[in-house]
């Protein structure tokens, strides 16, 4: 167990390191720098600005300086806005985390409930409806869904206000983000629940006279949730990054849209900051779900 744990943590650290390398060198490979446009009025100003951000040094040295700063908790200053990166990231992450967290919670709870219902009411009308809707929902891209929701419920019906500085309405973005993972979890739970219900230990429990409710919750569901756990970690991570499009459609100004705009602005420190932040988040989530998976299922051996 301890060996497996150490191995996974090391792998995660290596992954994050590789991501920083990829991000740093690909970002420098994009033609054009942060001061190529309107900001630098003359070559002297440009040179001064580049010296301030260490851009005049060789690439490798820049990378070393950046990583050293990172270990001291310094993510640098944005070349576009001049603001502290760490602070900007935390602010926009608050928005992403709120929307994404709600979406993830709804997706997990509703997905497990619908999936269990579909499995328990197998081959009934309820099962068919749930399967039909969840199949349909996995075919709709989130940006199409978000646009339609925004158009119908905000613009036409006026039920929800469009997002602005003083009106924070989370309903539509949360629906747009949660629908796909919800239907995925529904399908996953259904198949694994059916699998669990056919197992010998469920029959034994029934034969012992355990009540229906207890059989479902204590024996079947607990075992059916194991595959769901493996999906939840990467799902939360992908909700937080895949939300770029949904965030920009609803103009939430979250972390995902910050990442995209920082690339178009060639805002080097901001690109690095958001990349590392998101990468740590995602790799961490994967790690946690892997470890939890091994912890809850004693049948899995550690290699």
């Amino acid at each position: 167990m301890a060996k497996y744990f150490v191995k996974r943590v090391l792998l995660a650290i290596v992954t994050i390191f590789i991501i920083t390398v990829i991000a740093f060198f690909t970002m420098n490979a994009i033609p054009g720098g942060p001061f190529n446009s309107e900001k630098a009025s003359s070559p002297q100003v440009k040179a001064a600005l580049e010296a301030r951000y260490n851009l005049d040094k060789p690439l490798l040295e820049q990378y070393v300086i950046y990583v050293q700063g990172l270990f001291h908790g310094d993510m640098g200053i944005s070349t576009k806005t001049g603001r502290d990166i760490a602070q900007t990231i935390l602010e926009s992450f608050k928005v992403s985390a709120t929307v994404g967290g709600m979406a993830a919670a709804i997706a997990i709870v509703c997905g497990i409930v619908f999936g269990s219902i579909a499995a328990l009411k197998r081959n009934t009308v309820i099962d068919r409806i749930i399967v039909f809707l969840s199949t349909l929902a996995t075919a709709v891209p989130s940006f199409v869904l978000a646009t339609i929701l925004l158009y119908v419920f905000s613009m036409k019906l006026g039920w929800f206000q469009v997002w602005s500085a003083d009106s924070h309405n989370y309903v539509l973005p949360v629906i747009a983000l949660s629908l796909y993972p919800m239907s995925y979890i529904t399908r996953l739970t259904k198949t694994s629940m059916l699998d669990a219900l056919g197992q010998d230990y469920v029959r034994t429990a029934k034969a012992k006279g355990v009540s229906q409710v207890l059989v479902i919750f204590k024996h079947a569901l607990r075992n059916a949730l194991i595959p769901v756990i493996t999906y939840v970690g990467p799902m939360i991570a992908s909700i937080l990054t895949g939300s770029m499009v949904v965030e920009s459609i609803f103009t939430l100004g979250g972390l995902g849209s910050k990442f995209v705009t920082s690339i178009t602005n060639r805002d080097y420190p901001m690109i690095m900051g958001t990349t590392i932040f998101l990468a740590v988040l995602m790799v961490g989530m994967n790690l946690i779900s892997d470890l939890v998976y091994k912890l809850v299922d004693p049948r899995i051996t550690f290699d």
Partner: peptide, 21 residues
């Protein structure tokens, strides 16, 4: 290692670079 790379981040970074290069 490649499996645990966050795909969307890398895709966006790479496609910006490749597009320009």
């Amino acid at each position: 290692v490649i499996y645990s790379l966050p795909d969307m981040l890398v895709i966006i970074l790479l496609s910006v670079v490749l597009k320009e290069v």
